[in-house]
Design a binder for these strands. Sequence first.
DNA 1: CTGAAAGCGCTTACAG
DNA 2: CTGAAAGCGCTTACAG
Lengths: 352, 352
Amino acid sequence: MAPINKRVTLADVARLAGVSKQTVSRVVNGSQAVTGETRIRVEACIEQLGFRPSLLARQLTTGRSFTLGVVANSGIGYLMSGKAYMDMVREADRMGFSLLVKEVPGHSLEEVTASFDYLIERQVEGVIWAGPEVGDSHAWLDDYDPAQLPMPMVVVNAGLRPGLDTVAFDNLHAGRIATRHLASLGRKHIGHISGPMDRWVSRQRVEGWRQELVALGLEGVHLLVESDWEAGSGGPCLRALQELCPQLDAVFVSSDRTAQGVLFEAHRQGLRVPEDLAVMGIDDLPEAQYFIPPLTSMTQDTPHMAVVALRLLVRRICKLRGEPYPAACATPEDPSLLHTLVVRQSTQGGPF
Amino acid sequence: MAPINKRVTLADVARLAGVSKQTVSRVVNGSQAVTGETRIRVEACIEQLGFRPSLLARQLTTGRSFTLGVVANSGIGYLMSGKAYMDMVREADRMGFSLLVKEVPGHSLEEVTASFDYLIERQVEGVIWAGPEVGDSHAWLDDYDPAQLPMPMVVVNAGLRPGLDTVAFDNLHAGRIATRHLASLGRKHIGHISGPMDRWVSRQRVEGWRQELVALGLEGVHLLVESDWEAGSGGPCLRALQELCPQLDAVFVSSDRTAQGVLFEAHRQGLRVPEDLAVMGIDDLPEAQYFIPPLTSMTQDTPHMAVVALRLLVRRICKLRGEPYPAACATPEDPSLLHTLVVRQSTQGGPF
DNA sequence: CTGAAAGCGCTTACAG
DNA sequence: CTGAAAGCGCTTACAG
């Protein structure tokens, strides 16, 4: 490796090879318009000098940064799980882009604007808005004309807004499927432990649960308690539901972690799961099948969501520039993603 | 926001304000050498035009990128957990740096070199090598003279190498603490379910367990089984240990997830934990206190490790340039991090 | 305090 | 196939 502070430039290579800078440039960029002989000589000099082109310089001249901005909240980086993040990095790499992550501390217009300034200064070619929709966190979007943004943007896991590209799970659908499953087991008093109610995701799931109860002619739309999505709230939430309805025989929990807390509390109370109480979650964590008893859940492939958003963004960028799509995002994908039910002993019963 | 493809430049502002480009530059960079009057006029023009300086151009002239490279493996991005990653992004931001993540698919010298080329092309000012040490994944480091690298580098959670900055947990110490805890409860047959044995982290913990057994005069250094760190291997590993030693009365498990699988298997077998079998893990996941029974574990603050590594790297960069350290990394920190024991019912017993 | 000149390391037309 | 010129959007000395 070259010693510090001795960047080798195109000019150095050109001098050594006895050619002009743009000939070297052509070799580096694999242009056809170079004699085999010249190419070989230049390549030898590149090797000898350990030349590596400065992408900064290239980016300045071409006007492209090949960088994408990912904006995430400070709070919960659910999307930024190790796997989801590495999947995005890998996929972006395949399509020739780097990822730049920006954390936005809050949701005031000033903070949002500051984040955009940060990304614009760094010339990102597109933005993925990956912060969860909390309260009015996405309100600023309603006032923004997306066409006025200096670059394309894709919003992840938030409510749909006209004219805005959004990739999200159909959480209302998830709520309906979960509730239908519990009802299909003959349960009559199906409570719901929601996520934080200032979350779009949580409200959608609540709405799905409610709609399905109504559709099935079941009572119990008042059997709703709010969790913080952590395991610790499982116990208190279960007890709250039991107070609302002593005959409670099923709980649809909005996260596997909280469901684990519910199972813990049920065990403490000496309740049999699922005989006395059926429990199900959402997320299908890898550990869910080792809960006691193994947890019925719904898979939610957030890494896939992230990658779909990324591909959509690159499509938008290419379209804008009139360029062909990279192979990785050649075919359009459905921006509405579905959860899949995974039935285990916590609702279905049986040995394990 | 400015419409697409209409980047406003310094020159535009200068023209509108009727001053030279470097005056605008001075205003943007907060140089003192500008009359209040001029400054105000220029600022108005900046506002009016929506000017945002191009960091690319600035970086090219100043020779600085204010970007740090983070290299991670494709396999397990343990360091890249949502929280660890966001903590790094935030801390880097505070010190004025952006983070660029590069995934290295394998560990051949070619792949490592390609990753460095990638980072050098993008002019990162320093590198955090964050891939876990697996097999000979870090062997290339032994042949590298760190002084020859074009930028400073900090290695995370790997074995120490002379002349190389490394920030890591003292996993040997963790193994000793865990084993001592189980022995202190009077357990005589303390098995260990290790992580994958090609991992440096795993081998260190095994060594700590072994050393402590010897120090305490306990038998059982053969009671060793290897897991894949997932919950699924808990059952098979426990059964394997039981075959090796029917009197097995304690297991030190190298991850909470696998420990959950062990608890699951113990429950299946009708074993009482901890009366028949004491179980403890490492990681202290937030859910560990809701395992049945609540799991004794050891905290391991990986986000903190990541941040310590980041600060050390920035120190190295500043030192190299003869610049003062940012406040965030002004005081040196210990690169050797310790786990903390958290005792719960899975070893100590009692109600929950 | 302010400006004209040169340059950072590339690439893009345009000639030969 | 190859090269001389101009420029990307800034900043760094150097003059006034």
